[in-house]
């Protein structure tokens, strides 16, 4: 379609303005993190090319982000592996095999997706406490696996339902078992859907704040976002190190996003019901 030159220019101006608006806080943090340490009172050297990458090292040590990142990585990794596996199995069952109660079960999963975590958190906390699981790694893993499996089942069921029947029929005629059909025929075909599910689960688990805040007291079990919130509380003299910490916490997901943005965007728009 053809539009006038003036309109075209105006379009670009508006787009650039919104892009800048979207990036403004990100750049604020990035520049602050690379600038001279405002709490050290100007006693620091010139840095590399006027930048101060050493802030990241200082923040890493002072904020103990090493420990937080390790917890986050372990929790996110475990939640992703376990919930993707469970989601594949339950999605396969709900998507390809009609059985009694399957509709009821599916609605149960839907409720699990729609139920906001704030609502279940209070009873969940006391349930886990009576089992002696609060302030252990299980209190971080179990609720998040449950949330992720609910969404994952919904997601994989949709994929399995839309999958090509004839491939499954052909494999069955060749004598493949139900189990083999899943792993050797369908899962390789489902790779894009599985990748999307993986990155979304990873992002949600990594960024989760409320569950770790409530469930965990020990410092060694704090996840990265939680660690950042505590760092902000303790470290009030300046912004530089806090900004560096913020960069450290955000980087893993942002890097993943830059490489797999198609999956992020598609997943969050299509599977949009969670969160």
């Amino acid at each position: 379609m053809r539009v006038s030159r003036g309109e075209r220019t105006a379009n670009y101006v508006v787009l650039v303005a919104f892009a800048v608006f979207a990036l403004w806080p990100v750049l604020t943090v990035l520049l602050a993190a690379l600038g001279p340490d405002d709490a050290a009172g100007g006693s620091v050297g010139a840095g590399v090319l006027g930048l101060h990458p050493e802030n990241f090292v200082t923040a890493w040590d002072q904020g103990r982000f090493g420990s937080y990142l390790r917890t986050s990585l372990f929790v996110s990794g475990t939640v992703v592996v376990v919930s993707v596996l469970f989601s594949l199995l339950s999605g396969y069952a709900l998507g390809t095999m009609p059985f009694r109660g399957s509709t009821v079960l599916f609605y149960l999963f839907l409720v699990g997706i729609m139920m906001p975590s704030e609502a279940v958190l209070v009873p969940l906390y006391y349930d886990l406490r009576s089992l002696g699981l609060t302030d252990t790694i299980w209190a971080l893993l179990l609720p998040q696996v449950a949330q992720s499996v609910a969404f994952g089942t919904f997601w994989m069921r949709a994929w399995f339902r839309s999958a090509n029947r004839s491939v499954v029929e052909a494999a069955r005629l060749d004598g493949a078992s139900t189990w083999r059909i899943l792993w050797q025929v369908l899962v390789p075909l489902a790779r894009p859907a599985v990748v999307t599910l993986t990155v979304l689960t990873f992002m949600w688990t990594w960024n989760e704040f409320l569950v770790p805040l409530v469930m965990v007291v020990s410092e060694s079990l704090r996840t990265a976002p939680l660690g950042l919130a505590f760092f902000q509380g303790q470290y009030t003299q300046g912004f530089t190190l806090l900004a560096a910490g913020a960069c450290i916490v955000a980087t893993p997901v942002v890097v993943l996003y830059l490489f797999l943005q198609r999956h992020f965007i598609a997943g969050m728009l299509e599977g949009a019901v969670r969160e």
């Binding site: 379609m1 539009v3 892009a19 990100v26 990594w206 704040f209 916490v249 997901v253 942002v254 992020f264």
Partner: peptide, 27 residues
């Protein structure tokens, strides 16, 4: 109108969605 750089624009405006809320709040 077809605008060049639409993909880039989409990447940029969607970016806030993937950053942890704590980081956003700090910023």
């Amino acid at each position: 109108a077809r605008v060049r750089g639409l993909g880039f624009f989409r990447t940029v405006v969607f970016l806030p969605q993937v950053v942890a809320m704590v980081v956003i709040a700090v910023a």
